[in-house]
Amino acid sequence: MTYSKIIGTGSYLPAQRVTNDDLAARLGAKGIETSDEWITTRSGITARHYAAPDENASDLAVYAARNALEAAGLEAEQIDLIIVATSTPDFFGSFPSTACIVQNKLGMRNNSAAFDMGAVCSGFVYALSTADAFIKAGHAKNVLVIGTEVFSRILDFDDRTTCVLFGDGAGAVVLSATEEPGVLAIKLHADGSYGDILCGPSNPGNASGNRKYLYMDGPAVFKLAVTVLEKVANEALAHAHMPASDIDWLIPHQANLRIMAGTAKKLGLSAEKMVVTVHEHGNTSAASIPLALDIAVRDGRIKPGHNVMMEGVGGGFTWGAVLARM
């Protein structure tokens, strides 16, 4: 039987690091009061990175992809499929897709398939599950899965409740066909009835309104997230016939430290078993899980054979979990 396994990880953060004090000064110039303490207390975030004016989601993705390919020991031409999870594509309407742009920038001429995945902060989990399905069906051997975002472009800097939470970045993995289990369990969900609590900018001429920036009902998102993240993690564990105590590392979507800590506690996991990058990166949406995964792999925390639970929740409303053995 064919399985899929993560054989390489990579990530990239734009050069511009923006601290809470930097944002406080920017908002203060508009007469909007905020502070490092106010932001940190509510989110756990102390800094984030913003893309340069000439950097697009595809540029961040290419850097992360190259790092993942190098770690996997593969050339770009050996990739059969590229899936890019993003809510901030290079082009309006996502055509050409960011995945096709990444393929071109990587210099790939093998006509590998490429497409984008839209599930917001759950995007990487959805994309990873799709890659796993392609491999298990025999349609691909090596798949490049990327989460990349430039959320700084869709933030309302007159709204301190949202603009302080998000950042830009990219993370990538190479998922390859193997004879031993790597991806152990996947569970995905969606509920469109919650679509109005977290929304991006509307299309021009949208009959339901002309929203220019991201909108989020923070309390409603928080309430839903803490409920579904615990449930979906337990569903994945049940599918794999594995107790939570066998999880070596929990990598939740890096959105809010209180949500993340609450999920770990409900699963009976100590804080030491959770990978946390939200304090330095903010919420990078589809990039947050692969970004955190790469950092923990490269600093030696995550080792071969470790069981890693990755889970995300995002606008749509979507949520899901992937349990993988590294």
Rank of each mutant, 00 (worst) to 15 (best):
T2W: 03
S4H: 08
I6Q: 01
T9A: 13
D21N: 15
D22W: 00
R26F: 06
G28S: 13
A29L: 12
E33G: 06
S35M: 11
T40H: 10
T41P: 06
G44I: 01
H49P: 10
Y50A: 04
P53Q: 08
S58F: 11
L60H: 04
A61Y: 04
A72N: 05
L74H: 09
Q78G: 09
A85I: 06
T98F: 01
T98N: 03
C100W: 01
K105N: 15
N111D: 15
A114K: 06
F115W: 10
V120M: 13
Y126R: 09
A127Y: 04
L128C: 09
G138W: 07
H139L: 12
A140C: 14
K141Y: 01
K141F: 00
T148H: 05
R153Y: 05
D158W: 00
D158P: 00
D159P: 01
V164Y: 03
A172Y: 06
L175Q: 06
E179V: 05
A185Y: 10
D191T: 11
Y194N: 15
L198E: 02
C199K: 15
C199W: 03
G209N: 12
Y215Q: 12
Y215N: 05
P219G: 11
V221N: 09
L224T: 03
V226G: 06
E235H: 04
I247V: 13
P252F: 06
L257K: 11
G262M: 02
G268D: 10
V278S: 01
I289Q: 04
R301S: 14
I302K: 00
K303T: 13
M309D: 05
G315N: 07
G316Y: 03
F317W: 10
W319P: 02
G320K: 03
V322L: 09
A324E: 03
R325W: 07
R325L: 11
